[in-house]
Design a protein around this nucleic acid. Structure first.
Lengths: 338, 338
DNA sequence: TTTCAAAATGTAATCCATTACATTTTTCTT
DNA sequence: AAGAAAAATGTAATGGATTACATTTTGAAA
């Protein structure tokens, strides 16, 4: 293996000069730098990052913890994270936690062992108090989901406002029997969306019968959505609109409705959340809330590196990025407003 | 920061003993080991991986290069890779190459700089000769796609056989006007599927009019599939079945057909490839070829680590994993076999 | 009890780049 | 041309764990 010493010898300079050249120190005379680069080229030298990391006490690696890869929503955020990290010459260790607390811990421990400089958390099922202590010592950014009082920056959309808009839109279309399918998790997004839904309904003096707020799996699985939908569609009177907290769930509702011979949006309005690719692949195209996933990923990286590089960076700013209501085919006025 | 030296002092032993204890060397007396672990616990010591990596000349990290994250097919393989790596205490750097050769190179360079011990390549747009030279020096495994004469192990299904089965099945249903939508890339899978399609058609003495083999984008985009489908469906006589090299493309064909007022499978049979989740989310459920994605990911890791750990491991074995023909709703006999 | 091999532990070199500090070279002023 | 400041370069310490080799301890045989 070629080491910096061999390069130094080849270039007729000291190792310090080689190091400075490669790190673009301004203290190297251009002519000397040229010789060094020449030697690097000739010998095919590639610096050993482990040595650099050891000395500089950093790794140029950031972690991205996601509860799964199968949700295209996460894929898009991860793509954004990867893009920005690439630009800033960082690498991303993507960790599929499967929602297991112990795997979250093991991954986060990588920061203590200097294998990673910081971490971006996308909705994890962590143990709050443990995480709180952890956030004290390590650089963490929360993306999409966040534990409110945690001492670290976060990036998300305004879930409460977005949901209010969506429910208000349904209301404006003429719906009054509006049900909701949430998810069996403690995510802040889930809680805020539920609250926004209830608030609008209350404000409009609309009834929300028990069981009109139904739960799908923690990770929004298609099957659990179908099940929730079947239960909802069996109710009498049946809701005329169902607001779902994810696009996959919305697709599962459409599927369940069709199996019952109901047409969407003719007999039932269905809305989703996230605006993943599949929303415009089959008719009816889904009315949903678009999140700037890619940008959210990018912004998370910026916040994280800001915290790593500037000691006195803002500790716990929460960046809210703009969402967009995508009005498409799956929502329409109810047939008869009984 | 707590170092091994402090642990040694605390435990009243030498650093060598601490190191041996933590690496489970059998040469440490149990009683001593206990003291050491006690000290580790007390001080909250976490070994510095950079130092370890420098000394051992390894990183316990493997790379996984994928051309994109948006295709659920890749997500499933990556999940398999992550699972297996987790079991073996390796970390996975997932790299989204976006199909750019320069980013593939930059990621692969991480092996030369000792940031990664090996790499799993999922269909990349590499420069063959460069890669060949690279594979000499570094540990690489190809998954799903592979460059045939490259000196490295690979994992894939038998694309040729799988396609033959699918086309034979269409034939058996009674189709004779069978078209195909491939992709504008040089992947081995694309080439083999095309060849298998042509071979079966020739064998059955079926005509393949020019333009019945159409190309979607290199990365199977929905829009490009729709375009290809529209062109195919405008042909006279129109094909009665379209074999697509990916599920997304199949969905795009169904979408295009429906926009023309054609029913699937009534007026047109459509088949996909990969069996991603979405194939059973909307009707018609897709007839497709299932690949053991998760297992392919896991197997790739095993092959890679085998190569890393055993100097004389098999250099270029190609593991073929079993596929499965999923007969579902999108394929049916043609209405009239004119 | 002595002796010696085996087992356990310790000492110090090593991995390779970075960087504080020391030294040399260059440049500019007078 | 001398002298001082600035710029460039060099020397050697440093980061923290691993491990070859040296030394001590243990335990069993004689």
């Amino acid at each position: 293996m070629v080491t910096i010493e061999q390069v130094a010898r080849q270039a007729g300079v000291s190792v310090a000069t080689v190091s400075r050249t490669l790190n673009n120190s301004p203290a190297v005379r251009p002519a000397t730098a040229r010789q060094v680069r020449q030697a690097v080229e000739t010998l095919g030298y590639v610096p050993n990052q482990s040595a650099r990391n050891l000395r500089r006490n950093e790794s140029q690696v950031i972690l991205a913890l996601a509860p799964n890869f199968s949700n295209p929503y996460y894929s898009r955020i991860l793509t954004g994270i990867g893009d920005r990290a690439w630009e800033l010459e960082y690498s991303v260790l993507v960790c599929n936690t499967l929602g297991h607390a112990n795997s979250e811990r093991r991954f986060l421990k990588m920061m203590e062992s200097h294998q990673a400089d910081g971490a971006i958390l996308l909705g994890c099922h962590w143990d709050y108090s443990w995480l709180a202590r952890f956030a004290q010592r390590s650089h963490i950014v929360q993306c999409c989901e966040y534990v409110p009082d945690l001492d670290c920056p976060s990036v998300a959309i305004d879930n409460y406002a977005a949901t209010r808009e969506m429910v208000a839109y349904l209301r404006q279309l003429g719906h009054s029997r509006i049900a909701m399918i949430g998810a069996d998790n403690q995510y802040i997004s889930t809680r805020l969306r539920r609250q926004a839904y209830l608030d609008v309904m209350a404000q409009e003096a609309l009834e929300v019968p028990e069981n009109w707020y139904r739960l799908a799996d923690a990770d929004y699985s298609f099957a659990s959505g179908q099940e929730a939908a079947r239960a909802l569609l069996a109710a009498v009177p049946r809701p005329t609109a169902i607001f779902c907290v994810s696009d996959i769930l919305a697709l599962s509702v459409i599927s369940a409705a069709q199996e019952l011979g109901l047409e969407v949006p003719g007999d039932l309005t269905v809305t989703g959340f996230d605006d993943v690719d599949y929303t415009t692949m089959v008719h009816p195209y889904l009315t949903t809330v678009a999140q700037p996933c890619h940008e959210m990923g990018r912004r998370s990286v910026d916040l994280l590196l800001d915290g790593i590089q500037n000691e006195q960076a803002a500790l716990s700013a929460c960046a809210f990025l703009p969402h967009r209501l995508m009005k498409r085919e799956s929502a329409a006025p109810p047939k008869n407003t009984i």
